[in-house]
Amino acid sequence: MTVRGLVAENGAAAMRRRSSNSSGDMVGWRRDWLVIPGLAVILIFFIAPLGVMVWRSLTDPSPYNYVRFADEAVYPRVLLTTLWMTSLVTLNCLLLGYPYAYLMHRVTRNWQWLLAMVVLLPFWSSLLVRTYAWTILLRDGGLINTVLIGIGVIDDPIRLMGNATGTIVGMTHVLLPFMVLPIIASMRRFDSDLSLAASGLGARPIAIFWRIFFPMSLPGVMAGCLLVFVLAVGFYITPAILGGRTAFFSMLIVVQVSRLLEFGFGSALGIILLAVILVIIALGSKLVRLDDLVGHSGR
C-alpha cells in the first residue's frame, strides 16, 4: 500500500465514522449493532486484562507495589533513562525522517513510489528479523567494525551494540516510518499556490521553505514525534537484543513477570508505564490534532 493509499483510506474511514454517527434513522440505528462484535473483542482481550492488571497491582500483595517503585532508586532511574533514550530516538527519527519526507514530496511520481517502498519495507518484515539483521552489522566482529579495522580507521572494534547506541540505532530504524508517514501526509496537504504566492511577494526559495512550507508541515512533525515517542517508550524486543545490559523499562517488567514471578509488582510497573504514556498523549494532543495522526485533512 502506498503512503497516499494509507492516508486516503484513513481519511475516508474517519469520514464514514462521522457520517454514520450523525444518521439517526432506523437503518443507521440497526447498522450500529454491527459494532458489537468488535467492541466485544476489545472488551475481552484488551480492557478486561487491563482491569486484571490494575487489580493485581493493588492486591498482589498490596498497593505497596507502587511505594516500592518509588522507594527503590533503580526503577525511577530506569524510567528516566528510558524516557531520555526515547527522546533521542524521536529526535533521530525526526532528523532523518523530515528530509526524507521532503525528498519524497519533491521528486516525481515514480521516485515517490520507490522512496515509499524503501521506507515501508521494514513494515512488512518481522521485527525480530530486522533486529537480528542489525547485529550482523553492529557486533564486534560485524560488518561495520570489520570494514573500519580493514581500512585502518580503528585498531580495536568499537562497541556499537550491547549498549545505548545499539538500542537507539535499532529503534530509529524500526520507528522511522511512523515519523515519515504523518509528515508526508501534512506535506501533501500543502497547496503549491502558496509557494508561488510567496515567491511573487518577494520570498527567495529558502525563505519560502522556512517561513511558509516548514511551519505548515509542523502538524505532521508533531504527530510523527508523538507517535514515535509513544511507541518507543514501550519497546521491548529491540532494546533487549541490541541494548545488552542497558535497561529499558519494559525489560524490568519482563524480569518481574517471567523470572521473579512477581506478577503484582510487574503489573504495577506496567500500569506506571501506561500512565506515563497517557500523560504524554494528553500533553501531545494539546499540540497535535489527532486527525493529523491519520492524515485526515481538515484545514
Binding site: D191, D193, L196, A197, S199, G200, L201, G202, R204
Partner: peptide, 14 residues
Amino acid sequence: PHRRDIGMVFQNYA
C-alpha cells in the same frame, strides 16, 4: 518572480 516586484491575487487567494 521574487525579484520582479509584481503583485498577484490568486483565484483561491493563496
